[in-house]
């Protein structure tokens, strides 16, 4: 049980240095890092599209129209239709929901679990640290896609399972980076002070150490976003990710899109463009965020 401190250790810190509001901070970010701002705008647009998919999409993404199979882009179907006569644009719009859900879900859970493990590992040190690190080494030895594939075949391929399968390979990668930041934080006397005050391990880890690894955490999170979307697209393309008839970009590139690529190239071109644009935007934003927060940290 945690022993309550006689004073609140966290409340005063924020009061001493008044923080700038988020609007000036965002403006400064845009001015100093135009590429990142472009990425942020595209990401914001994508989120908007995903949220208002029901309003924006001209057709139901699941409605099959055998009268308009493989129709080329025209006035009624702006980006053409697929082998089942489903509107490609509508499926792209709804596909953004799948991509963002998997992207944010996997990146958030992966980075968070990684941060907790990384900080915990650094805080406890000694044997726990050693064993955790060895375990992480084992997980990192698998290529991302191989581990995700294995996970999907264990868990099955519903949307939550795909998210979990993509989350798991991200955890050790994040834990590694966060641990190295947390190691230096552990040396700062306030951690010893917190221990001397009798705080529980949990409280020290969550309230005192985790907030101080926010910068690498956000950086890893934003780096994972793009990777998770790519990974989901790859899994779905292999037929092992999200399943038909859910609209997902990787799934749209599978099967008929390749078989009929010569006669109906729009089926193969647009979903790929959507994936690339999404990941590109996330990476632009993530990169600039990293440069702004911690120029020394390298992510791929």
């Amino acid at each position: 049980m945690a022993i309550q401190a006689p004073f609140d250790t966290t409340a005063d810190v924020a009061a001493v240095e008044p923080r700038a509001g988020w609007v000036p901070v965002a403006l400064a970010f845009c001015r100093r890092r135009p590429l990142g701002a472009v990425g942020a705008v595209v990401v914001a647009l994508m989120i908007l599209v995903a949220l208002s998919a029901t309003l924006i999409a001209p057709y139901d993404p699941l409605t099959v129209d055998f009268g308009a199979m493989l129709a080329a882009p025209n006035a009624t179907h702006w980006l053409g239709t697929d082998a089942f006569g489903r509107d490609v644009l509508s499926r792209l719009v709804y596909g953004s929901r799948t991509a963002l859900l998997v992207g944010f879900g996997a990146a958030f859970f992966g980075a968070t679990a990684g941060a907790i493990l990384g900080v915990g590992s650094a805080y406890f040190g000694g044997r726990i640290d050693l064993y955790l690190q060895r375990l992480m080494d084992v997980f990192i030895s698998f290529p991302l896609i191989i581990l995700a594939l294995a996970m999907v075949s264990i868990l099955g391929n519903s949307l939550p399972n795909v998210i979990t399968a993509i989350t798991i390979p991200m955890v050790p990668r994040c834990a590694l980076v966060i641990r190295s930041s947390a190691l230096s934080i552990r040396e700062i006397p306030y951690v010893d002070a917190a221990r001397a005050a009798g705080f529980s391990h949990g409280r020290i880890i969550f309230r005192h150490m985790l907030p101080n690894v926010m910068a690498p955490y956000l950086i890893m999170l934003s780096a994972f976003l793009g990777q998770a979307i790519l990974l989901e697209a790859s899994l779905s393309f292999l037929g092992l990710g999200v399943q038909e008839p859910i609209a997902a970009w990787g799934l749209m590139l599978r099967g008929a899109a390749v078989d009929f690529a010569e006669t109906a190239p729009w089926m193969a071109i647009f979903p790929g463009l959507a994936i690339s644009l999404a990941v590109f935007a996330f990476n632009l934003f993530g990169d600039s965020l990293r440069d702004a927060l911690d120029p020394k940290l390298r992510t791929l």
Partner: peptide, 18 residues
């Protein structure tokens, strides 16, 4: 290079073949 990270290589492959 950011575009290189963003473009799925399998899609690039499909485009090449196409």
């Amino acid at each position: 290079s950011i575009a290189g990270l963003a473009t799925p290589s399998f899609w690039l492959g499909i485009l090449m073949i196409l």
